[in-house]
Amino acid sequence: MSFFNKVLASIGIGSAKVDTKLSQSSIKVGEEAEGIVEIKGGSIEQNIDEIYLTINTTYEKESDDKIIHKQAVISTIKLNEPFVIMPEELKTIPFKIKIPMDTPISTGSSKVWIQTGVDIKGSVDPTDRDMIDILPSDMVEEAMSVFSQLGFKLRKVKNEAAPYKIRKRLPFIQEFEFVPTSGPYYGKFDEIELIFFQIDETKLEVIMEVDRRARGLAGLFSEALDMDESLIQFTIQDYELPTIKATFNDVLMKHS
């Protein structure tokens, strides 16, 4: 092991490399992603202190009238105890990592990836990033389907910094913006914004912000003062899914 090779490895040249291979490209929230992490030894023997996986996304935050993009870690797992990898040696570590129920689904501008980090003593730490398509829970999927049935179209989905009053485990919420394009609510609402908090496999918390379309002088006055928006919060159990359309319909009728 030459001193020159040690110097090169310390700046990442000839150091160990990491490659994570997922068994699936898409997965539903609450389920486990599986795969393997391959560590390929470099030109010298190296001490691998830690290999870890993180589930990540980005979100928007407003600061001084500017939108900044921040990264959030949703979950982290450690895969190993310290070990030594020899030159050109290939080690394979299988893994399972659960996708938390509050992971944003992959739609609109919301992207999720699994990042692999390797802590190597005295060297640049290699990383690997793998995008993964996150699918909604059955309850969220049904709720979104119902809105389509009621004549709404999904216009925008984004992750944004969570207001303090509704913030939970993560620093952001995923917001779904629907606009009425047909049906009984066309012309009554400008837009409907939905936030889903999947408490567990059987319970879904819904926060709905309705933006009523201004009608007449009184309506225009209310709109100018942001009085045309209402915030509604309610919970749906899985056994209520057969009547979820009636639930949303009742809420919308009360605020139209």
Rank of each mutant, 00 (worst) to 15 (best):
D119A: 09
I120T: 01
I120A: 00
K121P: 00
K121F: 08
K121C: 00
K121W: 01
K121Q: 13
G122P: 02
G122K: 13
G122I: 01
S123F: 05
S123P: 02
V124D: 04
V124M: 04
V124Q: 04
V124N: 02
D125N: 15
D125Q: 07
D125G: 08
D125T: 07
P126I: 04
P126N: 04
P126D: 05
P126Y: 07
T127A: 07
T127D: 08
T127L: 09
D128P: 06
D128H: 13
R129P: 01
D130T: 11
D130L: 09
D130H: 07
M131I: 04
M131A: 11
M131S: 11
M131Y: 09
I132W: 10
I132Y: 08
I132M: 10
I132L: 13
I132F: 10
I132G: 04
D133Q: 14
D133K: 14
D133R: 13
D133F: 13
I134E: 13
I134T: 14
L135I: 09
L135T: 05
L135S: 06
P136Y: 12
P136N: 10
P136G: 08
P136C: 11
P136F: 10
D138G: 03
D138C: 02
D138V: 12
D138S: 12
M139P: 10
V140A: 06
V140S: 03
V140P: 05
V140W: 08
E141Q: 14
E141P: 03
E141N: 14
E141W: 03
E142M: 10
E142Q: 12
E142D: 06
E142A: 11
E142W: 00
A143L: 07
A143H: 00
A143N: 07
M144Q: 15
M144I: 02
M144S: 08
M144N: 15
M144K: 15
M144G: 14
S145T: 13
S145I: 05
V146C: 09
V146R: 12
V146Y: 08
V146E: 11
F147P: 00
S148L: 09
S148H: 12
S148T: 14
Q149G: 01
Q149I: 03
Q149E: 15
L150M: 11
L150T: 05
L150H: 04
G151C: 01
G151Q: 02
G151V: 03
G151Y: 01
G151T: 01
F152C: 06
F152S: 04
F152N: 01
F152W: 00
K153C: 00
K153L: 06
K153E: 14
K153H: 06
K153Q: 13
L154N: 10
L154V: 12
L154T: 02
R155L: 13
R155M: 14
K156S: 04
K156Q: 14
K156M: 11
K156N: 14
K156T: 09
V157S: 08
V157L: 04
V157W: 03
V157E: 09
V157P: 03
V157M: 00
K158T: 08
K158G: 00
K158Q: 07
K158W: 05
K158F: 14
K158I: 07
